[in-house]
Design a protein around this nucleic acid. Sequence first.
DNA 1: ATTAGCACTCAATGGTATCGAGTGCTAACA
DNA 2: TGTTAGCACTCGATACCATTGAGTGCTAAT
Lengths: 363, 363
Amino acid sequence: MVSSANKGVMKVFLDDMLDERKKRILRAIIDDYIGTAEPVGSRTIARKHELGLSSATIRNEMADLEEMGFLAQPHSSAGRVPSDKGYRLYVDHLMELNELPVEDIEGIKSAMEVKINELSQLIRQASMVMSRITRYTSLATTPQLKKSTFKAVQVVPIETGKALVIVVTDAGVVRNCLIRIPDAILPDFLIKVSNLLNEKLVGLTLGQVDRKVVGEIQDEIIITKELLMPILKGIAECISQIDSHEVFLDGTTNIFNYPEFRDIIKAKEFLSFLDQKEILCGLLESNLPNDSVVVKIGAENCVDGIKECSLVKATYSLGDVVIGSIGVIGPTRMEYPRVISSMNYIKKKINQELKKLVEGNTE
Amino acid sequence: MVSSANKGVMKVFLDDMLDERKKRILRAIIDDYIGTAEPVGSRTIARKHELGLSSATIRNEMADLEEMGFLAQPHSSAGRVPSDKGYRLYVDHLMELNELPVEDIEGIKSAMEVKINELSQLIRQASMVMSRITRYTSLATTPQLKKSTFKAVQVVPIETGKALVIVVTDAGVVRNCLIRIPDAILPDFLIKVSNLLNEKLVGLTLGQVDRKVVGEIQDEIIITKELLMPILKGIAECISQIDSHEVFLDGTTNIFNYPEFRDIIKAKEFLSFLDQKEILCGLLESNLPNDSVVVKIGAENCVDGIKECSLVKATYSLGDVVIGSIGVIGPTRMEYPRVISSMNYIKKKINQELKKLVEGNTE
DNA sequence: ATTAGCACTCAATGGTATCGAGTGCTAACA
DNA sequence: TGTTAGCACTCGATACCATTGAGTGCTAAT
């Protein structure tokens, strides 16, 4: 990805290498190829796009562009196909980010503004609407909230010998864990313990629970190991539940709409790839330096299995803290402008809704 | 499905229609076809299986079997392929349910006996291991627990104006729901309300909460609508969460291993079918009259999209109550004996583990 | 009743001819 | 000097045809 600081310098290099006409032709070729999935010939470009040039001229330019590595030829008497490098240039400098169509905006809005009171539900919903709108496969990681803080901790009696540990975070996420406690413990004592836990933990981040805090608790109340241990284990379990993150997928069968997956082997490769949740997760969460939308094209995805796919991804945040990401994956011949616009919009929308969800939990 | 009461009568009809030799031949053909996916010729049967018959004799028998509808011919000079009716006979009367291989038993055991403390997690695990062992696609519905009873209900204060409603069932399932309550409510009062709720609800099934019970509560404590309504809504939300059931899928890409899905259109059809969670759910939960393993072959599945697939399914129960089901779906050319044996075993295992989970929650 | 033998069928395979979209190159032109 | 018309060439795709071989049904002999 080209950082915006470098973009100016890049532009000069670019102008040296590619004059305006070459850029126009390259863009025309890629636009065409994205639409048709067929190698693009010089005649096609001369006819469809009003460049005022003959096919012969375009042919010469195409040969140049191929030599520079922006185009490739499947075989010597075929038209040209964009290379990863070609797509890269297209995404960074050539394409036009047009407005998102009204129906897509409406689609996103109506999907996201239904009353949702679970954080991960919101992300699920966002992923779903992305796959529907882009017609590619969408993926998203559920929020990781290690940095969120305790809002309340409670130990509630359930029946003799059993209690429930409950953890509530400032993001409004609630988890619980059933524990076994000594039979002799009275409900009143659990309330005292709860109060103390609250006092000690509220405001800390989930990651900050350590031996020191535990020691402080032990100092202030006479508590047996038989009671304390299960409670701490329960809290730990709640924390790990909150922090565990899964990957959601939507629109996996969308790939069958694209001719590049007409080959059963390609289709299998892609779908098998999507089955590897850990790799998927790594892919989605790697290289997310800034807060803009990131595009990974073809072999730029260092993972085997999707070297002929592109990934458009973005993060979402709670306040200033990035807590997860969402992406769209499809053939390198992807409708980048549309996907990127959608991604920009949904990212904004997720952040808005997350904020609402947490602040305005007061509904 | 043939009920066991009818099986004796069926057998007589069967013997009338098919002598021992025809049965042996039919079985040989189906066994062979299940292994190879190639139409089976008379020579193959004569050679591979020691029936002491020439190919010509077998040819005659095959013609008979075809006329009876147990076999079909893709084209006039090809071998025979079993029809749905043929598979039906095979499953009901011909195949041999051999012992499950030790490694499969071990696989199931080791997957199921890891410490799991969530009911639906257990089912997820079971589905996963089934897809791995059978090498087909497995599916399962999460437990539906409308008939389970309240073990505890609690309203816990979180912060001023907010409380958490918690419902625990006898199956050890816990759900919670954050609610908004009037600011003036004191924690002590919530404890009183909790105690009353417990008194009234514990022992009832989730489905039994009705206006009468609510009325009883209102009679016994002075409670404002502003507090009671959110609590009841919270309880309702918890119940609906407990009762909501999803479908899990595993091994969806396994189908690419089978030549019947070499055709991209077939593969798409199948995978798209699996995307329709509601239909899937209906399929899995329909026709589960008794507690044995049920096999639905080809067009017996009244749902479009899997007319060339077979489904082997079973229910699992908590005590005597069926609370969900698990199934394996694959081509009609399925290794029925192996799948059915696995299904029998995993069903038993799930029931065992469920029992342990609920009773021995006391760990 | 069983089977050897034989003519027949038909999908699959591989080879060949044809077609056409597209290229590169050359020569003519503005 | 850049552009373009014209032309020979390339090569995948398509269609056509002959061949092959696994498998069948039928008949006649055992």
